[in-house]
Design a protein around this nucleic acid. Structure first.
Length: 284
DNA sequence: CCACAGGACGGCT
DNA sequence: AGCCGTCCTGTG
């Protein structure tokens, strides 16, 4: 199956390397291949043309439009952010092809629990091993890919099993959260309808989900909330450098950063965070 | 061998 | 409410 669009707000590296996803890998020809839901997709850019091809469960056009957020006007978003100040203008120019993916809520929850106190190569490795062990195999171009395991597929996995995959101290958190979700102690179906503040409170009840992970889930999953501002060490760094200018960045409190984000970026603070984070990480 | 990188959590004040 | 030690693994 194949689908093609023209876009000047779609850059492969910006989308796949900006820290929002863990299952997309670069091929030798510069394209990226990834797995989401039961799809294996390859995305290639030639000039202004974006070519999607692979194995899709359903209509490839609809699947790509949903997942890659193709109906959203990123030009307008970038214009709005650029007006805020020169810092945003520069960051937006740098990450001009970023799009926030609509990732499966369950997968985003588990992925970002794994991300706690962890680095990207290791996070990717753990998620691949988890998928290979408990997901479903899909063969594409003679290569094997594995879907992200469903809650049901993790039902009988023990804490020790998780530990063997290299999860470290996150093993118990993954186990507890899986069962909280299976038992509907936290009902993922209901989160969509809740205002951001209440959806966040629900997510915080999950084991291994703290403020930063909750905000990442709200921003990067299908919940798609832009009124959150995930604060990790890089965001603390960039916000201190650009605005707060404390000589010791570790003295800057989350509260202080959050207040600044509310005032400066308002209800699109999540998008501001992405451009600032990506710019700082890539140019550091 | 040690230092460091990266968030959640629980025990403490 | 805020502070701080601990949790695990990979890298330099």
């Amino acid at each position: 199956m194949e689908y093609e669009i023209e876009s000047d707000t779609f850059e492969l590296a910006d989308i796949f390397e900006c820290g929002q996803c863990f299952r997309w890998n670069k091929e030798e020809n510069g394209s990226y291949t990834g797995v989401f839901h039961n799809n294996v997709l390859n995305v290639e850019k030639k000039g202004n043309k974006i070519i999607f091809k692979g194995i899709c469960e359903g209509n490839i056009e609809k699947i790509c439009t949903d997942y890659f957020d193709l109906d959203r006007d990123y030009t307008k978003i970038k214009e709005e952010l650029s007006k805020i100040d020169d810092n945003l203008k520069r960051s937006v120019e740098y990450g001009k092809g970023i799009r926030i993916l609509n990732q499966d809520l369950w997968e985003t929850i588990i992925s970002f629990i794994i991300s706690a106190n962890n680095n990207i190569p290791r996070i990717k490795g753990i998620i691949e091993r988890l998928s290979k062990a408990y997901g479903k195999k899909i063969v594409y171009n003679n290569k094997e890919y594995y879907t992200f395991p469903t809650p049901e597929e993790l039902r009988n996995v023990t804490v020790a099993d998780f530990r063997k995959l290299g999860l470290g101290f996150r093993d118990i958190r993954l186990y507890e959260t899986t069962h909280m979700i299976l038992d509907k102690e936290v009902d993922l179906q209901k989160l969509d309808k809740l205002p951001t503040k209440l959806a966040r409170e629900e997510l915080l009840r999950l084991s291994g989900v703290g403020p930063k992970v909750a905000d990442c889930i709200l921003l990067f999953s299908t919940l798609k909330r832009f009124d959150v501002f995930p604060i990790d060490v890089w965001v603390r760094r960039v916000m201190n450098e650009l605005y707060i200018k404390n000589e010791d960045e570790n003295k800057v409190t989350k509260k202080e950063i959050q207040k600044l984000a509310d005032e400066k970026f308002g209800d699109i603070q999540g998008l501001a965070q992405q451009y600032l984070f990506y710019w700082k990480r890539e140019t550091a």
